[in-house]
Design a protein around this nucleic acid. Structure first.
Length: 421
RNA sequence: GCCGGGUUGGGGUAGUGGGUAUCCUUGGGGACUGUGGAUCCCCGGACUCGGGUUCAAUUCCCGGACCCGGCCCCA
């Protein structure tokens, strides 16, 4: 028996049906917002990720040298490929809105909500610098979760990189990236440790205390501006906080209301340049459900062409945990699925004909070919998610009717087969 | 890469330094080609792997693999 590789998952029909429902909800939501589908290879040149992400990330990927001596990587994230596609077709009129649900790989120790292979719903807008584009990206993430039945079960934490950088500068930071990384650890470190680290970065214990109390509290996103002014009246971040307000009010006008301003959300990647956001379950028991932000410099890095961009990624693993917990991981009623069971040898030919007749009319119909007794056939039919069994024996052959049994209720009806010819 | 806890048929479990390893369920076959998705009968199927201690290891010890969780990192 050959075992599955560590950190990978198998999907049997009962879960695959639900996954397909979820993916189709994602696609439907993307279309509602005007996004178009794209796709790209699972294997890319290692360079694509080296440019952007550095050796640290690269060491956590499936990378190898192929037979042509090329260094290649199983894609660990979607954005570089998306940007590559855009750069390869420079004359596409902007803005463009693209989405994709790729599989992604990372070579890491598996843990809760984290596997070595996962699917991620990914959407980006290129060439639209407006705060409304930010809102559309966040709105799409919210719409998707709402459609999956999670309305009210999650919150979106937003923040703005430029605002945080200005605050850090105004407080005398010795290194912005280091400062952001310390802030990013807010929910993992003790208060003492945070103050210590911040004081080291800012060179002042008083400033560390002020910044600490600023990031310690989330406020409704509409109150972000007041909150920033209250703590830092002199940092001149009006432009950015106005943009953020515009994004938030667009989201509220679409009725996506669980948005909070959270100064502790800065996101780890260095390439974000504007708004950043993460979606969390309300109880905060899982990792982030989705995350993203504006990244205006990444395209320059990969394609040499300047291009403003904003996007998000939503992994399937945390989403599944949450949906299961909320009892939303279930099979929706779809079209009826028929299986034709014969209980007389002379009915064989007729059953094949009936199956063909139904399929030609777009009805899902299979035949049961194993000649079991009726009890076993019915049991097997239920186990294979058929909704109805069409039973044909001597009686039916003579009368020109078929018996149709609803497999969940046991209710039976006669079906006229005389007009089949 | 590091740390903690696990691993007994497909799933769920009982148990043990010594004999044919418990029970439920699932699977296959039959009674049985008419709705008993039942019932009855029969049959498959497991101690995670390697090394050590021991007369004897599924059981005790060490190491690996895998699973669950955490760290690092976060895409």
């Amino acid at each position: 028996m050959i075992e599955r590789l560590k950190g990978f998952r198998d999907f049997y029909p009962e879960d695959m049906i639900v996954r397909e429902q979820i993916f189709s909800t994602m696609r439907r939501s993307a279309k509602l917002f005007g996004f178009m589908p794209i796709d790209y290879p699972s294997l890319e040149s290692m360079e694509l990720f080296r440019t952007k992400s550095g050796e640290e990330l690269l060491s956590q990927t499936y990378s190898f040298t192929d037979r042509g001596k090329r260094e290649v990587t199983l894609i660990p994230e979607a954005t570089p490929s998306t940007v590559r596609l855009l750069g390869a077709k420079k004359n596409i009129p902007k803005p463009v809105k693209w989405y994709c649900i790729p599989k992604l790989w990372r070579y890491e120790e598996p843990q809760s909500g984290r596997t070595r292979e996962h699917s991620q719903f990914n959407a980006d807008i290129f060439g639209d610098a407006s705060p409304i584009a930010d809102a559309e990206i966040i709105g799409l993430a919210c719409e998707t979760l709402n459609s999956l039945g999670l309305k009210g079960s999650f919150e979106v934490r937003i923040n703005h990189r430029q605002i945080m950088e200005r605050i850090l500068n105004s407080m005398g930071t010795r290194n912005i990236t280091e400062g952001l990384n310390i802030i990013d650890r807010f929910r993992k470190e003790t208060r003492e440790r945070m103050i210590e680290n911040l004081a080291g970065n800012l060179g002042s214990k008083e400033n560390a205390e002020i910044l600490m109390s600023f990031i310690s509290e989330k406020v409704p996103a509409s109150g972000a501006d007041d909150r920033i002014r209250e703590f830092f009246p002199n940092i001149h971040s009006e432009k950015f906080s106005e943009n953020m307000s515009e994004t938030v009010s667009a989201l509220e006008s679409w009725d996506y209301s669980d948005i909070v301003f959270d100064p502790a959300t800065v996101r780890g990647l260095t390439y974000y340049t504007g708004i950043v956001f993460e979606g969390f379950d309300r109880e905060g028991r899982y990792r982030s459900i989705f995350g993203g932000g504006r990244y205006d410099n990444l395209s320059t890095l990969i394609t040499g062409q300047e291009m403003t961009a904003v996007g998000f990624g939503m992994g399937d693993a945390v989403l599944e945990n949450l949906l299961r917990e909320k009892n939303l991981w279930k099979i929706e009623t779809g079209p009826n699925r028929y299986v034709i069971i014969t209980i007389a040898d002379e009915a064989q030919k007729f059953s094949l004909k009936l199956a063909g007749y139904l399929r030609a009319r777009g009805i899902e119909a299979a035949t049961s070919n194993t000649h079991k007794n009726l009890s076993n056939s019915l049991r097997s039919a239920t186990a294979n998610w058929y909704t109805h069994a069409i039973i044909i024996g001597k009686k039916e052959m003579e009368s020109g009717k078929a018996t149709v049994r609803n497999l969940s209720t046991g209710e039976q009806k006669e079906m006229d087969t005389a007009d089949m010819n």
